[in-house]
Design a protein around this nucleic acid. Sequence first.
DNA 1: CGCACGAAATCGGGATTCGCTAA
DNA 2: CTTAGCGAATCCCGATTTCGTGC
Length: 1043
Amino acid sequence: MRQSLGHKKPKIQPKKLEKVFPFDEEQREGEWRKAKTRGIGHKANYTVAQSYAGFLGVDAVEDALVSDLALGGQAYEAPDLMSVHGCINAVMNDSEEDDDAPLVFRRANSSSKQRHLSSTSKKTDTQKDAGSNLVSNQIAQNGESSHLQNVKLLSKASSEKPPLARPNVGSLQPASHNKLITNDANPKPKDGLSDSDDDKPLSHTLNSTSVAVQRKRSMEVEKICMHSKGDNFTSGSAGNMDLSKSNIKSENSDDDKPLSLKYSSSGIVNRSASLQAVKASQSTKPLPLSVKLTSKTKEESDDSEDEKPLLSRFQSKAIGGSSMKDSNVAEKSSSKSKLNGSDKKDKSSDENSAKGGQKRPLSGANPADSSSIKKSKLSDSSASVKVKQEDFVKKESKTDDNDHLPIAQRMKKTVSSNSASISKNALHKTTSSSLKKSNIKMKKKMKDSKFSKSLKMPPGSGGGQKWTTLEHNGVIFPPPYKPHGVKMLYKGQPVDLTPEQEEVATMFAVMKDTDYASKKQFIENFMHDWRLMLGKNHIIKKFELCDFTPIYEWHLKEKEKKKQMTSEEKKVAKEEKLKQEEKYMWAIVDGVKEKVGNFRVEPPGLFRGRGEHPKMGKLKQRIRPKDITINIGKDAPIPECPIPGERWKEIKHDNTVTWLAFWNDPINPKEFKYVFLAASSSLKGQSDKEKYEKARLLKDYIQNIRANYTRDFNSKDPTKRQIAVATYLIDKLALRAGNEKDDDEADTVGCCTLKVENVELVPPNKLKFDFLGKDSIRYLNTVEVEPPVYKAIGDFQTAKRSNGGKKDKGDDLFDLLDTSKLNTHLKELMPGLTAKVFRTYNASITLDAILNKETKDGTAPEKIAVYQHANKEVAIICNHQRSVSKSHENQMSKLNEKINDLKAQREELSTDLNRARKGKPPLKDKEGKTKKNLAPEAIGKKIAQIDAKIEKMEIDKQIKEDLKTVALGTSKINYLDPRISVAWCKRHEVPIEKECDVISTCVLIFGLPVFPDIQQITTSEICMVNGRRSQLQILALLDSYTQ
DNA sequence: CGCACGAAATCGGGATTCGCTAA
DNA sequence: CTTAGCGAATCCCGATTTCGTGC
């Protein structure tokens, strides 16, 4: 056991984190319970609409914040992220602004150090170094995994920290006015404020006095809250501004010593810096995130959407406010500050806008890149590398080398030639100063370039360049089939099969215990494809005469063998596999090592379609190199084909896409299977970020959109009317758009493809939906709708077909609509708006609303229960279901048994209590033994304990029952903006670590030094790390930077 | 020596995460 | 190219057993 601790590096870390901030198991979920009473059964009636109120409230809050700011007189312009960061920092301690740029790092270091040592003065470099050394030493002592230690430290620090947040929170919430969202036409001034926010955080921090700091902290908290409420989703720039300010200040004051120490710990910082630099150069630009967060995304919106209208709005807003100027000033003044990166970005954005809002072409992710994609990748990398190096140098000089070395090495690997210089730099401080200068310049350039890139051409927005250099090793194929020689029976007789035939027979045999094996369609398809292999004259003709049992039993035996392997053996096997796959696991994108998602080619098998899929059971042919197209950088070595004698189908060098390879789906040749980077990659994080930013942007338009469709409920134009009603359903019920489907796909529908029979009118004004959606998951929900909608649906159902006939139940309800028409319409309402955005928006806004509404003072477990409850409501809205586990019934009865057991104990104790009060000895227990003669008080205490236990178990039971069909993970990963979770944790002092399982990773988003080595990760990369994704990210990062 | 108590070790299975691949 | 659920793998925690200590 202990030993195990020593070994696993990556996984351990997470564990440790958890341990550091353990929550008491006992959850008393008071409110939660009540909420539950609604239970799953009620989910049917739950609609997004219920969360609207909270949503409005947010705006109000924002306004309040704004005024606050105004009063303060200071124009803080920190990006949202910053603000959040700050909060986090306060809690976690660390600095974080860094996300953005390399410069940031330094800052972060210094700031963190400062915090640690003493808030009063910044430490000198040497001081910092010392601090870092301490940390590193500690780590070293402990031994194996410095990570762990660091983590621990961090977590402790965070836990220890006195939370500032709370105080203000309450006050903020009250805000009641809800300002309507600004319409597209005239964005409010706030936006402008928000825009400006991005820039100047640093200066503020520095300036703020301790008192101010405290205040700010509280402010921050508030803001965060706001954020969580609405900020995240609302654009409230003003609020954002506040946040940023507060954040900054808070950061200064907050920093925990521990954190700073950790933070400062040399290696980490350097690494992160380098990473940041790299990223910055690339185009990931963490800054944008931050900006988006607080300031609201205006910038982002610009980036991604780039709608002129938006830009103009933002600009105007920004201009209108003093913020812009301030920001600029701040930037200048604080150029040295680490935040620079962000500042610069902001600036650049401002500048750009000033110039005319034109965005630069995406051309290169990195500034350097942009300058010349043509350059050999080496040169490109070198450019970015240089920046990195510089950062490194600085940091390294300060910190000790040990930690760094690994990183540097890594860097080298990726960068190649550069690495050497890096290491050297580390050694020589003297050079650092000059380097710094150059760095700063570089940074500026980089920022600008980044900025332009990121803003202008977000990857998601289409068309742009996604990378400049790309290296990877292709894909790995499953091992060839090994014939087992076990013969199946036909008419009771063993049959000889060729290895190919046996392989397919085995595919079927191993599925004997699944539902598929008894489905007609499955068997039909399987037999069809298998017969092709057997040939016309094979004795095997009829499925009914086949007996796969021998093969099935062989399979069971193999499985058992595997199970019986000792852990030692398993470990060895695992390591071997890892060794084999190692080279395929990573890609180098613009000089940064990133994890590849699905580098394993899908093995052959029988297609397992979901629901009543017409192709289930078909043979999924083995994929060979000749089926695969590789996409890779022009200058990168072409991956060697892993199967001797074979070759790739094609090599491409398309930098406008993110896939590394693809092949045609053998089941549906029209479709493709792509190999992408892992969720933890910056490319994915970036698009995630864009997704959430777009959702956030919707908040500014939603009011108008709703007014719009409400008006069109009664439109005389039937198409308009259908669009209005469909939009309403998508908004209110979070339905999917519903693309047309071919006959060879499962018969499922979405909004646009709803059939007449899928909706039932329930007088007076309810609609009952019953249909199979994506994954053939049933959507069953009865909701009350506005009368005009009710009437419209009825009209659509009875309307004439285009050919004049009468619609029947299988006809399209929205016969004049399809997804492209709908989305075209939506895009007119808001740039980039699609049906999916409503889902994201409503999921996140609902989380936000519930958290704000239901979180009360209380224990951490209570708060977490609130979070879970909110998560559950979102899952219900999105109709994320799961099948009830096989052991569910079993588990429930066990729980009941235990409860009954406890109740019996309670009874017995209560008898004893009565006797004890009368001075009598307790009765003998079941086995006839005599019990201790306890004092009545002692017995009473025991009873109370048991009562508490019973109550907890009852609650657990209830939760379990309620969640048995609800899948929380999907929304957590794909729909809930992690910034909401982070802000909430911060505000309510819920440890970010594991508590809400979602969140541990979010830390990364903000560049918090949870894992020192990861620190460098910038916002953009991680961005939306939730749940599992966060885990992945953490591990991936650790792997990539720590090894 | 036997017993009570508590800490450490071990075990078992529920909970969570991961990997996969369909949609 | 994102979103989704499933089954397997892994983690985690409580329950049970074992071990150690003191009376």
